[in-house]
């Protein structure tokens, strides 16, 4: 940590504690086995707001909002690789940044391990879709800024959707739009698109990314305790939702293309 100290920034006090709010959510008893889901059905996802082309400086961009997850994504490129090493395939570079105010606890504006683990998952979701073999010697940079964070699962899923929308907005050739969806197991049930609280209460969670246009899966991330049957069940449930999300992304891209 000491080596990462950056005196040009306002680093804040050395020791700080997040304030404890008297949450109404916390006053409510947390989820118990057998209870139905609050606010929506088990197979429902949160409403998605997606708008392409909000960052004029970038070649392509998208902003996504699913209730308390808010992510801005910008795509730069394809541009010439800075490294001199020849590569016949293009490089897809994904960087994720949490805004310092994005979480309950302030995040220091220094890159940490979690940024990278999210970036790796988002890159994996997009990599099979982007036609990098058409872009030798070049790099595509994708920058994601997480403005508000509501669980890692939601961030990876929404981030992948936003990034693929931004790639399409930048006019980069892809085999199909990448759509991602997450699911958590709560007892016997599968809840789609869990919020942070729900994911924490669950026994295991899963993120699937794929191209609904081709019916393929590009990324699977699973953690926690799930039986193989539950995993397949959740993957099927996520794939069913892919079509709905795909429509939203296609509509957002169409709107942006018609307006400009």
């Amino acid at each position: 940590m000491q080596s990462n100290f950056d005196r040009r920034r306002i680093n804040g006090p050395e020791e700080s504690h997040p304030p404890l709010y008297d949450h109404e959510e916390e006053a409510e008893p947390s989820w118990k086995l057998g209870q139905p889901r609050k606010g929506r059905a088990a197979g429902d996802i949160r409403p998605i707001f997606l708008k392409a082309g909000l960052i004029s400086q970038a070649n392509g961009s998208a902003y996504i909002e699913t209730e308390r997850t808010k992510i801005a994504c910008a795509v730069y490129g394809p541009r010439q690789s800075k490294t001199t090493v020849y590569n016949e395939n293009g490089r897809l570079n994904v960087e994720v940044k949490f805004a310092p105010f994005s979480c309950t606890r302030r995040r220091a504006p220094i890159r940490d391990a979690e940024d990278r683990s999210l970036a790796v998952q988002i890159q994996q979701s997009l990599l099979p879709a982007v036609r990098l073999e058409l872009l030798p010697k070049s790099t595509i940079d994708i920058f994601l800024t997480i403005i508000e964070n509501d669980g890692m699962e939601g961030c990876i899923a929404s981030g992948s959707v936003a990034a693929s929308a931004a790639l399409a907005d930048a006019g980069i050739e892809m085999l199909g739009l990448v759509i991602a969806c997450s699911a958590s197991t709560m007892g016997e049930d599968v809840w789609l698109d869990p919020s942070e609280q729900e994911a924490q209460a669950s026994s295991g969670s899963l993120i699937v990314a794929g191209m609904p246009a081709l019916g393929t899966i590009t990324n699977v991330w699973q953690s926690g305790n799930m039986t193989p049957t539950q995993v397949i069940q959740s993957m099927e449930a996520c794939q069913e939702r892919f079509v709905d999300i795909h429509t939203i992304v296609a509509q957002a891209l169409l709107d942006n293309a018609q307006n400009t």
Binding site: Q124, M211, V220, W221, Q222, S223, T227, I232, M235
Partner: peptide
């Protein structure tokens, strides 16, 4: 019993659900 504790797909290829 068996429980899956982690699953990851890495690399630049695709699979379909039936294959999975």
């Amino acid at each position: 019993q068996s429980s899956l504790q982690a699953m990851r797909l890495t690399g630049s290829g695709e699979v379909v659900l039936a294959q999975m």
